[in-house]
Design a protein around this nucleic acid. Structure first.
Lengths: 153, 153
DNA sequence: CATATATGGTTACAAATGTAACTGTCTATT
DNA sequence: AATAGACAGTTACATTTGTAACCATATATG
């Protein structure tokens, strides 16, 4: 018996999807606590803010593609950020279905503040997980991302 | 300008929580499709099944600790699996609050079938992401897991 | 130019989830 | 033994999410 294993030789503790998910939840949660406590943002809202802040003016579809969120999540997040006056929409001149999203001054301020927190958190993480751990993780993620790009992710 | 970056020097694309989450979703989703299509299981249900299959008889609390799921998720998953007759409960003799969960023959059969899929998927993953990618990811996850153990995860 | 089909984005409805309150049982302290 | 607190597990309610249908506009095809 390999490790308390009972039926067959499968071990959940070794299964990559499980481990990855658990680690992601752990790590995302600690940061989510920050933007939730500070501003009451949801994750889709933070992601939308971050996408617009770091890549500039974009359409909702582009935000979704950039940060892998479903249309409806983006739509709701945009609505919420708009209500806070953190972003404004402008209709595309040529295609009246599309609208361009852009952060307002207030949005930029919040973005700056949150990215400062994000950087702090990255540092904290580096300390918590260790330099080599982060390094390994990052290079593993590179590989996954490359695979995702190949097989539509 | 470093990479299409507009405000400040934060890049979402480099932010570990984001990358980790995206990769986890991608990887978990591909496998979820299998157990969802095959058996109509939810993720909490699959996890509970996997935990019981791979570690044997356990209480609901233990399942939760083992697979990091909230009480209520476990409770509902147990209920669902019980309805399918994949597990049975027996009350603890000494502590009448606790109940031990155990897979039935049908549960074991399903577990075997699903772990076969899981192994196939692991192999597929290894091919998709590459041997060294998986290796790196795994050692990164080890570091995270160690950190989680320290700081209550 | 009429019709079909695709696309950007929103909305309605159903399913999943988290939070908090609850029941029943156990343990410790008096 | 009586009371208070902790713990296993469930349930009710609110929030979040996913799916599918939808509206409006754009593009392609006959």
């Amino acid at each position: 018996m390999s490790a308390g294993n009972v039926i067959g030789d499968f071990d959940l503790e070794q299964f990559l999807p499980f481990r990855l998910n658990r680690a992601a939840e752990f790590i995302a949660l600690r940061f989510a606590a920050a933007y939730k406590a500070e501003y009451g943002l949801t994750r889709p809202e933070w992601r939308t803010l971050a996408a617009l802040g770091s890549s500039g003016r974009m359409t909702a579809t582009e935000v979704g593609a950039h940060s892998t969120m479903h249309k409806t999540k983006v739509s709701r997040a945009v609505f919420a950020l708009e209500e806070r006056r953190w972003l404004k929409r402008t209709q595309d001149e040529d295609d009246r279905r599309a609208e361009h999203l852009e952060l307002t001054a207030a949005g930029i301020k919040a973005y700056r503040d949150l990215t400062r927190l994000a950087r702090d958190y990255s540092a904290e993480l580096c300390e918590l997980v260790g330099q080599e751990g982060v390094q390994a993780l990052s290079s593993g993620l590179n590989a996954v991302e490359k695979a995702m790009a190949k097989r539509g992710g």
